[in-house]
Amino acid sequence: MSRAGNRTGPTMHDVAAAAGVSQATVSLVLNDASGTRFSEETRHRVQDAARQLGYRTNAHAKVLRDGVAGMIGFVGDFVATAPFAGKIIEGAQGRAWEAGLLLLTVNTGGDKALEKSSLETMLSYKVAGVVYAGMYHRVLEVPEALGEVPAVVLNSRDRSGRLPSIAPDEELGGYTATRRLLDAGHRRIAMINIGIPDDDALPAAAGRRNGYLRALADAGVGPDPRLQRNGEGEVAGGYANTLELMALDEPPTAVFCANDRTAWGAYQALDSLGLGVPDDVSVVGFDNQETLAPNLRPGLTTLELPFVEMGRRAVELVLAGSGAAGSGAAGSGAAGPRAGGPRTELLECPLIERQSVAPPNKPRNRKPEKRRKP
């Protein structure tokens, strides 16, 4: 036999020596054994040593020991084609890989037959669990089959309340965006939403609006219904609503747009009126869409959806046995749809500062006259 054929690669003993821990600790850390407690420093030492040595866990042994394959299923509707898909999958895949597992990803395109078939195939392969993801934050009808394995709903919520969910903290995001404008000195702050906030299926629209209203209330600013507009989250809606807002007798000095595409439309409308951002009107968006927000002129101050962190956290809950088939672990966010059931963990959306916010300019005593179509 050739020399190359005798190579077995680094062993668990080698990882233990490099990390300065016992072989048992390496085994427990790399296999994410339940009921064990290690400091983050120890966990990182073991993972770094394994990565540097090129150590691979024995997938066959894991199946024999645990009765599950070395894979976690990831099923989404339009996730793989959405602008933010890369980050949400990156987070989930990275966390799965740290646990020695592969992420088996299926994009169904909203096809329920494909979704059912995909889930049945994943379950037949005895995946360790399933992450069920939505393209945007909404309430979903979750397949009954997910009750057979540890499962987590990602970027959406389970209408039945059976499964735990991971979602952005929309209300805190709306509050942070509005607070940023208030801190800059604005009091006439408009909001252009991404849908009808009273629609129970759209927690993103409701949460961002509630955060906006709460920030105004905390600052002692009474809400003006004329400054609140509902759109569809597209450029055209941002454009049309901004024109209407700026035609008011007392136009806003700032606009909170509930997504970045709406903000792009607002930029175009303000430019068509001969108004500048932020000299005449400040604008804050939501999403931090990488192909858009940094490339507007000036760059758009916006809230970032924490997709990498959400993907990682969803896999962590699957590994911990969350879901109807697991322990039903509760998270640290708002309560889920069913009282006493699994909860929705809400992750903070950080503010990304660019150049679209400034103190309010002196009010203009004329209505804008110049209007050009985008």
Results as ranks from 00 to 15, higher is better:
189 I>S: 08
159 R>C: 01
183 D>R: 11
31 N>M: 00
234 E>Q: 12
244 E>S: 05
120 E>K: 12
56 R>Y: 10
73 G>V: 06
132 Y>V: 11
196 I>A: 10
213 L>N: 09
306 P>E: 04
219 A>I: 03
178 T>K: 07
316 E>Q: 11
345 E>R: 14
306 P>W: 00
303 L>N: 05
40 E>T: 07
232 E>M: 04
223 P>Y: 00
319 L>F: 02
48 D>Q: 15
184 A>T: 02
39 S>Y: 07
88 I>A: 06
116 K>C: 12
122 M>N: 03
142 V>A: 07
248 L>Y: 00
303 L>T: 03
236 A>R: 13
241 N>L: 06
270 L>A: 09
241 N>E: 10
44 H>S: 14
373 K>E: 14
248 L>H: 03
281 V>C: 05
74 F>P: 11
121 T>L: 07
87 K>D: 14
371 R>T: 15
291 T>C: 06
126 K>P: 01
176 T>W: 12
77 D>E: 15
277 V>G: 00
235 V>I: 14
344 T>N: 11
214 R>N: 09
118 S>P: 10
168 P>E: 03
16 A>M: 10
26 V>K: 01
119 L>S: 06
183 D>I: 11
171 E>T: 08
3 R>F: 15
21 V>S: 12
267 Y>S: 03
227 L>T: 13
68 V>M: 07
373 K>T: 14
302 T>Y: 01
246 M>P: 08
52 Q>G: 12
126 K>A: 07
309 E>I: 09
78 F>W: 12
76 G>Q: 04
242 T>D: 06
229 R>G: 03
246 M>R: 04
318 V>D: 06
193 N>R: 04
307 F>S: 04
351 L>Y: 06
76 G>S: 07
152 V>D: 02
150 P>I: 04
203 P>K: 05
350 P>W: 09
218 D>T: 02
88 I>W: 08
346 L>G: 08
111 D>W: 02
358 A>S: 14
243 L>G: 08
145 A>E: 11
225 P>Y: 05
326 G>M: 03
46 V>T: 02
